[in-house]
Design a protein around this nucleic acid. Structure first.
Lengths: 343, 343
DNA sequence: TTGTAGGCGTTATCAG
DNA sequence: CTGATAACGCCTACAA
């Protein structure tokens, strides 16, 4: 599998490498006939330029990267689609990069920036808990998307686009309260989580407090670290435990739609009816929530809008039009069939 | 954003570049103290080696790539997890690459192979309809995963791991028939699809034929090309159309779980009960199907096993232990609550 | 319009 | 153990 290089092509064509290069890169100053001949040879020998070499040489690749933490989050899918479209519109190329849960996204960003000569970076999910030290090292403009730095002391130092998780979580909890629920269980993330999960927990507590409902610690259920976070199974297990312990509650608020679905299924399996016997609410506003039976009452994050604004922010930064900026979007409470109003 | 290079590090440390290189790459022949000093300087100046340059120089990166077509397919998630684990076990590094629906995965593969000096490639989804010409160009071992070449004349020329889509689709259809259903609608993919969708359609027809049930063309519903393929919305729309046209059927077989869920929701919205009024079946055996209400009768593809075998096949090829090989797995019919036996 | 040559940041091969 | 130095494949002045 000896690689065929630009030199080989040049030799075969009887031209110089630069001519071949010009042909490949659509340079204007090249004889159309020469170009065609070269392209022909390239096809025949199926020559493929080596990207590493290109990146190495090129000072600018007009590329922006999206680092996604949490591959399986269905909420991101709709955003990614928008990113792809918008970035293509701007004639930039897009590098999609997954980041494992245990990986440090700033490290990945640093490497990738060098490798691909990025013009900008979008962090989708994750981060939040990161030291500014790490963030400061990133030499190109970047935007944190669906990540809120609200509450951090350095919140004004970086661009981010998100909803106010505390507020939205509070909104949902208050909705449940307005429907007559007082004993509301919460399915939230790992105990140690300091990211979204913690914010949503805060919002929940805040709402209860505001309504003078003392929090029963047994209402608050944390994910099993053994399980996939935000999986339906996680929600199922937490709910099952809740029931087995005989915790008294009239509603369950899950901090993601997938957890909520797991919860509903656990209730059904236990012979309970939703919402007649117990109400369930989710968060995110995913397709699943709308299509589930019963449809899940949830908080819809304006994914498409947020994606578009993320791009706008990033390109403003790239073009130095603006400095950092924070955009907080309002969530929308989408009533479903899974919550019942208590008499 | 002047990039700091290995040379800079070397200069600061007062050593040669090769020494720095050795430090970075854990070469054995280097003075531990020198190494520590170098690593220190690297930390302080947060130097990050440029991957492009590395790839360019390195003849071998011990990397294998997974090209995923269909980012949103939840069925792939569980497989990817296995791939990550297994590849890490072998001390290889993994490159995850998404391929857009309109992109030619063989092109992407070719480029990526050059760029990253891959040892092997896994194609997840997609392909199937590709000319061997393209496949032959790929200079490293590769395996098609969840892609069946059964029925192609060149099926023995390449390695693949999959279920027999025709057979499994037939299995499900026969299951429905065995439950007393004769009027079975099919929610399948685009009319022009020649990939999985076509195979499952074939299986469906085959089963009906075997049972002497004449196919009513109105039973066969194709996706709206405007919509996301295999989305719940797709399933919803197809089912709605089915109902509005007053097509007579007692069961709906959707060729994916997500389509099935869309179907159930459409039925519920139309005031029908599932399975009392009409039965619904899916395909893939995803988490969603099990957690849906009612749980969806589906065909479970042994995702984890298939992923493991894919890896095994690939590494056997890499180590030249074996030549190409085809692995066909049995699907498992998972009965759910969505199918009712007719009296 | 075309060819030559230098360098992008690393690693590997040699001598020291 | 360490340090020059030559590739790796490509792009881009610069010269022709």
């Amino acid at each position: 599998m000896e690689c065929i290089t630009i030199k080989d092509v040049a030799r075969v064509c009887g031209v110089g490498v630069s001519t071949v290069s010009r042909a490949i890169n659509n340079h204007p100053d090249i004889n159309p006939e020469t170009k065609e001949m070269i392209m022909q040879v390239i096809k025949e020998n199926n020559y493929v330029p080596n990207n590493s070499a290109r990146n190495l040489k090129r000072s600018d690749a007009r590329a922006i990267a999206i680092l996604i933490k949490g591959i399986s989050n269905p909420f991101f899918n709709s955003m990614i689609k928008v990113f792809e479209e918008e970035i293509q519109k701007k004639k930039y190329s897009l590098v999609l990069q997954h980041v494992d849960a245990w990986q440090d996204e700033t490290e990945v960003a640093l490497e990738l920036e060098k490798e691909k000569r990025l013009r900008g970076i979008i962090f989708l999910g994750g981060i939040a808990s990161h030291s500014q030290e790490q963030l400061k090292k990133i030499p190109v403009p970047f935007v944190l998307s669906t990540v809120s730095l609200l509450g951090k002391e350095y919140k004004n130092d970086y661009s981010f686009v998100s909803v106010d998780d505390v507020k939205e979580s509070c909104r949902m909890t208050e909705h449940l309260i307005s429907q007559g629920h007082e004993k509301i269980a919460l399915l939230c993330s790992y105990k140690e989580d300091v990211s979204i999960g913690a914010l949503r927990l805060t919002g929940y507590k805040k709402a209860l407090e505001a309504h003078n409902i003392p929090v029963d610690e047994r209402w608050i259920r944390h994910m099993d670290p053994e399980l996939d976070s935000y999986s339906m199974e996680s929600g199922y297990r937490m709910t099952k435990a809740l029931l087995e312990e005989g915790v008294d509650c009239t509603a369950i608020f899950a901090i993601s739609d997938s957890l909520a679905i797991g919860a509903v299924r656990a209730l059904i399996d236990a012979g309970k009816r939703v919402p007649e016997d117990i109400s369930v609410a989710g968060f995110d506003g995913t397709e699943m929530a709308a299509y589930y039976n019963p449809s899940i009452t949830t908080i819809r994050q304006p994914a498409e809008t947020m994606a578009k604004e993320t791009i706008k922010l990033l390109f403003d930064s790239i073009k130095k039009k603006t400095n950092v900026q924070q955009l907080i979007f309002e969530g929308e409470l989408v009533p479903g069939e899974s919550v019942k109003k208590l008499n």
